[in-house]
Simulated scan of single mutants.
Amino acid sequence: MIYLDHCATTPMSTEALETYTKTAQTFYGNEQSLHDDGDSASQLVHHCRNKLAAIVNGQAEGIYFTSGGSDSNITVLLSLAYGNEDRGRHIITSPLEHPSVYQALEKLKQEGFTVDEVAVKANGEVCLDSLAQLLREDTILVSICHASSETGVIQPLESIGQMLENIVFHSDTVQTFAKIPIDVKACRLQAISMSAHKLNGPKNNGACYIEPGTRWKGLYPHVTHQNGWKPGTIDVPGTAAFTEAAWAFHENRNEIAATWKDMQQWMLAELPGDVFSLFGDADKRLPHHLALRAKDIEGQWMMLECNRHGIAISSGSACKSSDSSPPRSLVAMGHNAASAHGLFRISFGKDTTYRELEKTVEVLQRIESSSAGTGAS
């Protein structure tokens, strides 16, 4: 199988696996226990906090561990909203977000919060003028992803941050953390969400960063773990493997991104433009991500046909609901339902080769050619 669905998940790297195994065998104490084994585990967790915070130019005490990206988004959004609701109950987001963001915001709407969505330009970037118009005196929270998992378009976080005064700014950076630069200070971000399994780390591991001093309220009473963040013993081996995987990307990200960008441009050049089209900005996008459409072919059918040929791609976010509605990000960009339903996503990993991409281009063209005139759409 040729695996080109790295925005959905990635295989654990050898280094992350080795780190997990060694940590599980050596640092098995509960990091809250007061004996030496507990203290060793606690020191390792503190080391991981330092390393993860350094990737985004943050502070170690702002790192809180979770069970992954969805958990990070839901927990941080609820915690920030509850911690600041005495100042207002208005929240702004975008139609580009991961489903977990909408799950959290839907709960908040049911509890009396008001949520508005910023408009999106045709190239997939949020409209800053629209954001400015939505800001109110009672706006307490803005949540805009760093890059949409569906479109791959990178959002202007620094410009957004400059617009927000006394408003908490959160970004879902699950698709970008350690892969492209994120500076929480430069972007004036108070909170971000991260996940391990998007960068060759273990599943069911993630983290949030909340800038120290930012107001938040824990979701559960009488919790002592992570300063009241959430109950449960920290997965120390998973946290160590997450940190190992993140640093492997961070230290080599320029080289990796350059390789991916070359692959991305090569693949676009090989696919005939009169048949295959790209959703979103061609330049302001994740270097390992292609959001494509083949003329008159549904994305899900393209995904199934590729799978039949031994190639794993995606027809959108792996966490999207199972209903038949088109991707809301593409509708917000101005695409009609038929066009939006054509989305299929190809995403590279560290070990992706040109030979695999050559085979994929060949298969995509074969599928398109064989489907012409057959009513595959």
Score class of each variant (00 low, 15 high):
Leu189Ile: 11
Val331Gly: 04
Ile144Asn: 01
Pro156Gln: 08
Thr19Asp: 03
Phe177Ser: 11
Lys203Gln: 03
Ser317Ala: 14
Leu131Ser: 03
Val361Ala: 12
Lys295Cys: 09
Thr139Ser: 07
Val168Asn: 02
Cys48Leu: 07
Ile192Gln: 02
Arg285Pro: 10
Leu278Asn: 03
Glu97Ser: 14
Leu128Arg: 06
Asp235Tyr: 09
Leu271Phe: 06
Glu270Ile: 01
Leu271Val: 05
Ala245Val: 05
Pro202Leu: 01
Trp229Lys: 00
Ala376Gln: 03
Thr224Tyr: 04
Ile311Asn: 13
Leu105Cys: 03
Met12Asn: 04
Lys198Ala: 06
Cys319Asn: 14
Pro287Arg: 12
Ala119Tyr: 06
Gln59Leu: 11
Gln300Pro: 02
Ile63Val: 14
Gly68Arg: 02
Val142Met: 03
Ile297Val: 15
Glu270Cys: 07
Leu134Met: 11
Asn30Leu: 12
Asp37Asn: 14
Tyr220Asn: 03
Ala122Leu: 09
Asp323Cys: 09
Ile256Val: 15
Val275Asp: 03
Leu80Val: 03
Cys187His: 07
Arg293Trp: 11
Lys121Asn: 15
Ala248Pro: 00
Ser100Asp: 14
Glu97Phe: 04
Leu343His: 09
Arg308Cys: 13
Lys261Met: 10
Gln264Ile: 04
Ala81Glu: 00
Phe249Val: 01
Trp229Ser: 00
Lys107Phe: 12
Gly334Ser: 13
Leu105Trp: 06
Gly68Ile: 03
Thr353Val: 11
Asn307Phe: 13
Glu31Tyr: 12
His197Pro: 07
Lys109Cys: 13
Ala318Met: 12
Ala132Arg: 13
Ala312Val: 15
Leu17Arg: 12
Thr224Leu: 07
His35Asn: 15
Gln175Ile: 06
Val168Asp: 00
Gly69Val: 03
Glu61Phe: 00
Ala248Thr: 04
Gly62Met: 02
Lys109Met: 14
Ser322Met: 12
Lys320Cys: 10
Ala178Lys: 05
His222Phe: 10
Asp296Ala: 15
Ala258Ser: 11
Tyr3Pro: 13
Thr75Trp: 02
Pro202Ala: 01
Lys22Glu: 13
Thr14Ser: 12
Ala332Trp: 05
Val126Thr: 15
Cys48Val: 06
Asp129Asn: 14
Gly206Thr: 02
Pro95Lys: 08
Ala186Trp: 02
Trp216Ile: 00
Gly124Phe: 10
His146Met: 10
Met302His: 09
Ala240Asp: 05
Ser40Ile: 08
Ser70Met: 08
Leu34Lys: 13
Ser42His: 12
Ile154Ser: 02
Thr23Arg: 04
Asn50Gly: 13
Arg253Leu: 07
Val120Gly: 08
Asn123Tyr: 09
Leu364Gln: 00
Gly112Thr: 08
Ala337Ser: 15
Ser322Arg: 09
Thr151Ser: 11
Glu165Ala: 10
Asp323Val: 09
Ser195Leu: 04
Met1Leu: 15
Pro156Val: 07
Thr9Asn: 13
Ser317His: 11
Tyr354Cys: 09
Lys295Thr: 15
Ala372Ile: 02
Met194Thr: 11
Thr9Tyr: 14
Ser94Glu: 08
Leu164Trp: 02
Thr139Ala: 03
Ser321Phe: 11
Ala340Trp: 07
Phe65Asn: 05
Gly232Phe: 09
Asn205Val: 10
Ser40Thr: 06
Pro156Asn: 05
Ala372Gly: 00
His335Phe: 15
Arg87Val: 01
Val168Met: 01
Asn227Thr: 02
Gly201Pro: 00
Ala147Ser: 14
Phe169Lys: 01
His170Phe: 14
